[in-house]
Nucleic acid binder design. Structure first.
Lengths: 130, 130, 130, 130
DNA sequence: GTGGTCTAGACCACA
DNA sequence: GTGGTCTAGACCACT
């Protein structure tokens, strides 16, 4: 598993939920495939200088959701029941909340559609070139 | 003042910060102009079924920031020291974080630029017709 | 809410799951009704001499499952989306795992059906007279 | 020895204790008799896809308890000091905890005695036909 | 080595 | 007062 989590402790979104959502997207997007082993709780905790329990909490939630499976004494793996990649509609649905929030902000800021779209396009291109 | 706040109690962003940020954008976007009166703490609290202290906390923070002024007997008004509307570059800068986050999510989901842009356009149009 | 939890720290079932399952049964059985307030995390923790986080974990899981709702600043209540009492088939399904385990043990112990049933009847009557 | 262990890795009861308790019941029930040879650690581990150390741990505990004996070159056998079969009262006593727990659950679920008994009878019959 | 559970205690957001 | 999040650290079960 070579997903690199992007953890921001000062984000309002709790750390464990940052992990949950990034992993959820990684699985839906096909970046993490069924059977892939996840970084160990301790490794991930140390890498981002956070507490192991915080990572564990995220993993447990995803296990309860059925996205991850626990292999006793081995670690967590992406559940074999997951599709290799979610359908496009499903992935767009996962993206929608973020775009709705951004659209709401754009309108409140009195920006026109074209300006907002151009900025988003620019952000997308930067992100893809990372 | 006819800014209509969009409050989601189950959002991870605390309610008082939802108010603060929406008002900040309303001022930057020119929707709220210097001297405009804000809804009273009680009115806003009742309208959204939230605690008056939550509203009060948001107003106090904005007052401390200099965006709002407390007028005795009148209530809170948008500070007269505010520009009528922030410059477009400034407003785009305020929008950028949300779009960067969305772009990052889109890439993690394995979505292509076109699909993401179309969805954003759709969100913008829905938001403008509210 | 007057559900009295029966917590055994030395049970192999983790404490937070003891709470989860007892509450699940209490709701399915109609003993806890939609809107009922739960004992506060701190109160329950103190009553059973366990850590508040243990209780909190149980409540969070039930919230994620949709059985409980969080009322900010007030506490947890039984979700209003719950039926007053689950259907009989559903409640029997919740009981089945325990009975299957007991049946397996009875067979391993070489006990006959009549003896096992009589003992269960006796246990039921004792339990009902509590 | 043809005791067939029923191992559930996802059960909250640790695997080594599942083995210990099933064997304890098999001995009490007369299914395993003094001198009976147990499956080898490796065989049992392979059969249930569990770690040999887990099986070994279970056997060691039972040896310490005096229920099993280690015979050099042969393996583990049921201790010759065991009675052929425990008395019926004793076996019922071993079954009681499981039934008490089930009875408690039935009452919490608001089920009546008849329904609970019928379900238990059904479980017993299924178990006997295995 | 893996994850799970629990504790004790701190600080935050909300009413 | 309510619950939420996080930390640091201990011990357990399993590979």
């Amino acid at each position: 598993m070579h997903i690199d989590f992007d953890i921001s402790p000062q984000d309002t979104l709790p750390i464990y939920r940052q992990i949950v959502e990034q992993l959820r997207r990684g699985i839906a997007g096909g970046q993490c495939r069924p059977g892939d082993e996840l970084p160990s709780v301790r490794a991930l905790a140390q890498l981002h200088a956070i507490n192991p329990m915080t990572v564990s909490k995220a993993y447990s939630l995803l296990e309860a959701e059925g996205l991850l499976e626990r292999r006793r004494g081995v670690g967590m793996v992406v559940a074999s029941t997951q599709p290799l990649r979610a359908g496009k509609g499903e992935r767009l649905a996962l993206l929608q909340p973020a775009l709705q929030a951004a659209a709401s902000q754009a309108v409140q800021l009195g920006l026109d559609e074209q300006a907002a779209l151009r900025l988003f396009q620019q952000c997308l291109q930067e992100e893809m070139n990372k």
